[in-house]
Write a protein that binds this DNA or RNA. Structure first.
Lengths: 145, 145
DNA sequence: AATATAAAAGATAAAAAGGTCTTTAAATAT
DNA sequence: ATATTTAAAGACCTTTTTATCTTTTATATT
C-alpha cells in the first residue's frame, strides 16, 4: 500500500537500520546503509543529510565518520520521520479526496478507513524508533537486513 | 490518506456522480461533471474516455451526447475503476516498501496495516457502483454535489 | 443535407517525484 | 601539515503524474 513516498520509506528503513547497527563509536556511511537496505545511494544520502540537518539523526564528516543515532535520537517517535518528509497532511485526507469528509459528513468508505488511519497514526506517534528497532531485533518483525 | 492517484479519485467521484445523476436519457458532458465534482475538465475528459473505452462507463457523441451509466455499468464493483487506473498492485505492497513482508515475515507495522488493507479491498471488491451511489443518495454518506 | 454538439484521439506542456553527479567543507589519522 | 575520508551542498537529469489544447469523428437535431 503505497501511502508513503519512496523518500519516507527509504528514510524509515535506513533509520531502523541505524538504530540496530550504529552507535557513536560505529558510524555508518551512505554506501553501507544503501547497500544493506537496497535503495539508491545518492538519493538516500540526500535524505539522511536532510534528516541530520533537522536533528532526527546524527552525523559526522571525515574518516570514520558517517551517520548514527544517539539515545536521544532513538527516543523520537517514528512519525517524526514521516512528518519531516511527507508531512502529516495525508493522515487527515479523505481516501476519495473529498473536501468535507469527516465523521459527521462521511464519504462512502469513510468508516472503513477512519479506524485504520487512527490506529496507524497512533502506532507511529506512540512508538519510538528504539521500540520499532527492538521489535526487528527480537525477530518479531523484520527489516531486509 | 492519499493512497489513490488523483486519476483514480477523480474517476470514482465522476462515476458516483454519474450513477446518481445520469441515465440513457440523461447523458452528461464533461464540463458539467467536472464542475460538479470540482476537478479539471480536460483531465477528467481523458479519464472518462478511457473508462468508456474499457466499458466501465458508457458514452455517446454528438448533440445530447455525453457520459452515462447503464444498469450493467452500475453492477460493476467499485474496485474495477481503481484496477483500470492505478492497478491492484498497491493492495499487495508493504507500507514500508519491504520486499518479503507477509504474515509470516511481518515488517514492524505489518499487523497494524494488514487488517485494514483486507477490509478496504473487500469493501471495494464486494460493493457495486450502484450500492455506493445508493448510500450517497440516502444521505448516509456524501459526495461533493 | 447542413449544422451544431460532444466525445475521441493525439500532441504538448507543466509540475512533482525520483534519482545522479560534482564540488566543497569538515574531521581524522598519519 | 598533509592526505584521506566522508558528509554537505548544489546543480542537474529522468520519469511519472497531472493537466491542457487542438483536431477529428460520430451523431442528433433542424
Amino acid at each position: 500500500m503505497e501511502m508513503l513516498s519512496n523518500a519516507s520509506k527509504y528514510a524509515i528503513n535506513a533509520i531502523l537500520y541505524l538504530a540496530t547497527e550504529s552507535s557513536v563509536d560505529r558510524k555508518i556511511g551512505t554506501k553501507e546503509i544503501a547497500a544493506s537496505i537496497n535503495v539508491p545511494t545518492p538519493f538516500l544520502a540526500k535524505l539522511l543529510q536532510d534528516m541530520a540537518r533537522k536533528n532526527v539523526i546524527s552525523s559526522s564528516k571525515g574518516p570514520r565518520g558517517g551517520f548514527y543515532l544517539t539515545d536521544e535520537n532513538k527516543k523520537q517517535k517514528l512519525i517524526t520521520v514521516i512528518a519531516h518528509i511527507d508531512g502529516l497532511g495525508k493522515f487527515n485526507e479523505c481516501v476519495l479526496g473529498l473536501e468535507g469528509c469527516s465523521n459527521e459528513k462521511p464519504c462512502p468508505i469513510h468508516f472503513s478507513v477512519q479506524p485504520f488511519k487512527e490506529k496507524l497514526f497512533n502506532e507511529l506517534n506512540t512508538n519510538s524508533i528504539a521500540s520499532f528497532a527492538a521489535k526487528v531485533k527480537k525477530d518479531e518483525t523484520f527489516l531486509n537486513l
